[in-house]
């Protein structure tokens, strides 16, 4: 029996080792918005066809993704919180930050619109109205890029959210999709990135309440993790992925990704920044 056990065990481990033996692969720590929106499923096969490199994506919040990079557990980080990204590079964990694309945030809310903000163009006024009426609001509460953007917007609105949050303000500490599911179940408002919103499949009863404010701009950036800090980083393969994203070809591929005719991400890499 023991013999059979160890044989099966060896088989099991060989199976897992076999899968990890491909070395033309990189690990990219990215955000739930790029994965949940389906962008990677569109982009990665194109990149693989061109380069032969497998990209393994770990979808986390921006804060966690940067931490994964800091620990050396990813080769590339692809996130959306510029100040945190710049700090990551300044602290020596990343080689260089490249802007890749943008989309925008939208304020999602229940169709019943208890705060009366639907159709408004001013996100700041809308947030103030939500706070004053204590209308339910779901916050990611997970240090993600969307969470950082939300906190910055409260600050701009002059609302000290740490002091004024009551039972109306719910921090759930989860990803974008989970936050939308929660907002739907509670009839609450929630700040979402447009990509996840468009591809989200459980929308019934939720509508876009506020969109189009310049303050809702959402920039994505990509950074190769520093091989000086972490020699295990696959420098050349990782750089190939970064170069592809900012290349004319990669930028066109990003622009071509549409769901139901709607473009989800708008490429805006600076042509001068290509290495």
């Amino acid at each position: 029996m023991l013999k059979r056990l160890s044989l099966a065990l060896a088989l099991g481990l060989a199976l897992s080792a076999g899968a990890s033996a491909q070395d033309r692969s990189i690990v990219v720590a990215s955000t739930t918005s790029t994965q949940d929106s389906g962008l990677f499923n569109h982009l990665l096969p194109l990149f693989k066809a061109k380069s032969g490199i497998d990209v393994k994506v770990i979808a986390q919040g921006t804060g966690q993704a940067l931490d994964t990079g800091r620990r050396g557990d990813a080769d590339v980080v692809f996130v959306h919180a510029q100040p945190q990204e710049e700090k990551f590079v300044a602290d020596g964990f990343g080689v260089k930050r490249f802007g890749v694309m943008y989309n925008d945030f939208v304020l999602i809310g229940p169709a019943a619109d208890p705060a009366g903000v639907r159709g408004q163009k001013d996100i700041v006024a809308a947030l103030v109205a939500i706070q004053q009426k204590a209308a339910p609001f779901v916050s990611r509460g997970d240090k993600s890029g969307t969470h950082s953007a939300e906190l910055a917007l409260w600050k701009t609105a002059g609302v000290d959210i740490a002091a004024s949050k009551g039972t109306w303000y719910r921090e759930i500490g989860q990803g974008m999709g989970a936050a939308l599911n929660t907002a739907k179940a509670m009839g609450a408002y929630v700040l979402a990135d447009r990509g996840t919103w468009i591809s989200f499949k459980n929308k019934d009863g939720l509508v876009v309440a506020v969109e189009g404010d310049r303050k809702l701009f959402n920039q994505y950036g990509v950074i190769l993790v520093s091989p000086q800090k972490h020699p295990s980083v696959k420098k050349d393969l990782g750089q190939a992925f970064v170069d592809y994203l900012v290349s004319a070809e990669g930028q066109a591929a990003i622009a071509a990704y549409k769901i139901e005719g709607q473009q989800l991400f708008f490429p805006n890499a600076d042509p001068g920044q290509r290495s």
Binding site: L13, L15, S16, A17, A19, S20, V27, K56, I58, R70, R71, G72, D73, H230, S232
Partner: peptide
């Protein structure tokens, strides 16, 4: 993790780690 005591094996995010 690469920053942890067994990081040099590069096992994080593989089926073996699971």
């Amino acid at each position: 993790s690469r920053s942890g005591p067994l990081g040099s094996f590069g096992l994080l995010f593989t089926p073996t780690a699971m």
